Simulated assay, not measured.
Amino acid sequence: MNATEWAEYQQRRAEVDDLTAVVADEEAQMERDLIAAHDEYELGFSQESQPGVTPAGRTPPPHRSPASSRGRNRGR
Rank of each mutant, 00 (worst) to 15 (best):
A56V: 08
R74M: 02
D39H: 10
S49M: 15
L34W: 01
A37H: 09
E48Y: 07
A36S: 15
A21F: 12
S69T: 06
W6M: 13
E15F: 06
Q50I: 12
R12K: 14
T59W: 02
E26P: 04
P66Y: 01
S46C: 14
R58V: 00
W6A: 10
S49A: 15
W6Q: 12
D17V: 13
N2W: 03
T59D: 10
T54R: 09
T4G: 03
D33G: 05
E42A: 03
A36I: 04
G57R: 01
R72V: 02
P62E: 05
N2Q: 11
A28Y: 01
A21I: 12
G44P: 00
G52H: 09
Q10P: 04
T54N: 07
A14H: 10
E15S: 14
Y41M: 14
H63Y: 00
V23K: 03
A24S: 11
E42F: 03
V22Y: 09
M30F: 12
L43R: 09
R58L: 04
P61F: 00
D25K: 05
Q29V: 01
D33I: 06
L19M: 14
Q50M: 14
E48C: 12
P51Y: 04
T54W: 05
R70D: 00
L43T: 06
R70T: 05
E42T: 01
Y9F: 10
G57T: 05
M30K: 06
N73G: 01
R64I: 07
F45G: 09
Q11D: 15
R70N: 05
R64Q: 10
A67Y: 01
A7P: 00
D39Y: 04
H63T: 08
V53C: 11
